[in-house]
Amino acid sequence: MSTLAYRRPRGRFLARRFRRAGIGTYLVLLLFAVGSIFPLYWSLVVASHDNSAVAAYPPVLTPGHELWHNITRLFNSGEVNVSFWSALLNSAIVATVVTAAVVFFSILAGFAFAKLQFRGRRALMLTIVATMLVPVQLGVIPLYIEMIHLHWVNRLPAVIAPNLVTAFGVFLMRQYIVAAVPNDLIDASRVDGCHTARVFWHVVLPAVRPAAAVLGLLTFMNTWNDFFWPLIVLSPRNPTVQVAVSTLASGYVQDYALVLTGTFISILPLLAVFLVLGKQIIGGIMQGAVKG
């Protein structure tokens, strides 16, 4: 048998993802990138002028100097119809608590579904997956009734409690743990002297860190951006930041500069997270795509 040295494919036969991109590709991609960023940039432009600039013709395209002023106006709750400070604080509290809870409970339940034996495991898992297909709006009305009974209307627990667990989180963790924790590793730990809780602590927890991070990021982002339910159950007196921004925009006189300053501030924390952890977020989404 002859042995041919392996020749790296060249030219037409080189896999697409290794081929150098042409100018056309870069141009179109640049178009997409600009299109993606522009609206955000635009909001910054508007936020950094005073309201009269909005009506300018031709429209202003470069940032102005009023940003700081607009921000102080935003937080001066005397001038504005909502307290933006408390909105930011509320969102921070809600997002943090929900993220911690979702990640923790999802790992717990995901571990059980992935690696433990118990009656009804299959049926329960199918129920969970099925509910992922159900729209949020379906349960909204009874949930509101529940909140009335619990006296939680217009209070933070109303937006925290229903979100403490998600079917998506359990599903994600289960899939990940099935793949990332080999069964004989669990067997080995049992022989070494671990009962189930120790298996969880010593074997599962160290292994799920990447997935937990992705789930945490996604949950934080989604909770921060949540609008429909907070709109229903909270009022402008005790809002999350999304509700607050929408309240800003509901006045009779449209102060666009103020409104878009509000949107800009509301985006900032997530933007910061994205700048720092963007690579992980991208990786998480892409890995999930292949496994799903």
């Binding site: 081929r19 150098r20 991609l29 990138a33 955000l40 509301s266």
Partner: peptide, 28 residues
């Protein structure tokens, strides 16, 4: 899906809209 330079930058740029909230998008 090509051998791009600055590939993370491009990916991040097109993912950026996802990070913004619906409220912000709608108002902008």
């Amino acid at each position: 899906n090509t051998g791009l330079r600055a590939r993370t930058l491009f990916r991040a740029a097109v993912l950026l809209p996802q990070v913004t909230s619906l409220v912000a998008v709608a108002l902008i």
